[in-house]
Simulated scan of single mutants.
Amino acid sequence: MNPYRDLPAERFWRKAVAGVPPFAIDPGPRDSFRIARTDRVATAGSCFAQRVSQALARGGFRYHVTEAAPEGMGAAEASARQYGTFSARYGNLYGPRQFVQLFDRAFGAFEPELKAWRREDGRFVDPFRPTIEPDGFGDEAAVIEARDHHLAQVRALFESLDVLVVTLGLTEGWRCRADGAALSLAPGVAGGRFDPEEVAFVNASTAEVIADVSGFLDRLWSVNAAARVILTVSPVPLIATYRDQHVLVANAHSKAVLRAAAGEVCERGDPRLAYFPSYEIITSHTHGGRYYEEDQRGIAEAGVAHVMRSFMASFSPGSVQRREPPSRVSEAEFAGTAGVVCDEETIERSLA
């Protein structure tokens, strides 16, 4: 007996990869839960999560936003202030510890000692979402007032969503030494002052990521037991590393840790949880690098289109064909990419 004899075609490289046109490769889950058009779908995570939310909205799904722009605010200002960028104005959540602490802050279980950062221009920003107000705040009190409103909307989001798409982006990050508060950017990049006595660089291990992802899921399900979660890993590389090694090596390490942790968490078999291979689709060598922009970091529209075809085929199979013939792939998919907010890019701008 050969144990491989009766396995389906998707288990074999020749049949599922080499024998399929690159744009038609579909490694998405087959037996996962389904998303209805009426489901409230939320997104959170790194900058790639924004591409998913944009595609969901274009696809006619109910993109769930609890922290919407104030009535009368123009579209350009709303975009600049990151209303609708994610389901609430939490900005980029790169590391799993940020998810845990966002939940704990929203539900009153954690109050960071750090309240605000002062910028070089004298304005103040929220250190946990430093780019959401381009003009900053007038004082620390205004930061706290906006934060309290924001956390109330986050609380409403977690309690009301039906599906949450989580994109894990980084293992590297910075935390306050006093209480372990996780930051999206190092002090001094978009506000504040860098002091190694106050903040520490961390690079989360696989075990830490597993613990944080599991901890966040347990928290979410404690207030919303029916919530379904789709876990992904961002294919967007690091813009910079603080580790003493080449950024290419650091990126490979970081993504490997996130992918291994995500796989281990999802393999526990909870029917409310699914892993979706955005990372694998974009980074696969079968596309010859066409799914990246010229900077080899930004994701081209062709890549996003491929990810979303597979996503819809997995979670809303009636909305698209699983295998699209070549004639159905539009040349427009290979055009430019939509604007995406990436806090990491502030690192390079701060050095200019």
Rank of each mutant, 00 (worst) to 15 (best):
F103K: 01
G169C: 07
F201H: 06
R30N: 02
F137S: 05
R62W: 02
T283S: 10
F48L: 12
D179P: 12
T167W: 02
D295C: 11
K15T: 09
S350N: 07
D31G: 10
F128I: 05
A262T: 13
R349C: 00
Q296R: 15
A204S: 13
F334N: 04
A42T: 12
V213L: 14
L238T: 02
S284R: 04
S79F: 14
S79L: 14
V223H: 07
T131P: 01
Y292N: 08
A227C: 13
S314Q: 10
L258Y: 09
L217Q: 06
T241S: 15
Q101N: 06
R259L: 15
A57R: 14
R259C: 13
Q101G: 08
R89V: 10
T232E: 01
A16L: 06
Y4V: 11
P112Q: 09
L161C: 13
Q245T: 06
A55V: 02
Q50H: 07
E208N: 03
T241C: 10
R118L: 04
A146P: 00
R309Q: 14
A88Q: 11
I282D: 04
V202F: 11
P29Q: 13
A300H: 12
R259G: 09
L238N: 08
E324F: 14
V154F: 15
V165H: 11
G59R: 03
N92P: 13
T241P: 01
L273A: 11
S160G: 00
A69M: 10
Y90G: 03
I25D: 07
G108K: 03
A75D: 09
V41R: 05
P112K: 09
A18Q: 10
P134R: 03
E267H: 14
F158A: 05
G269K: 06
A305Q: 07
I299P: 10
R97H: 12
A69W: 08
D162F: 14
D162E: 05
L220Q: 04
E10I: 12
R40F: 02
F201S: 02
R5L: 10
V125G: 00
D270L: 08
P96S: 14
A227Y: 07
T66V: 09
V236P: 01
D31M: 05
G289L: 15
P96F: 09
N251Y: 02
D135K: 06
R177C: 11
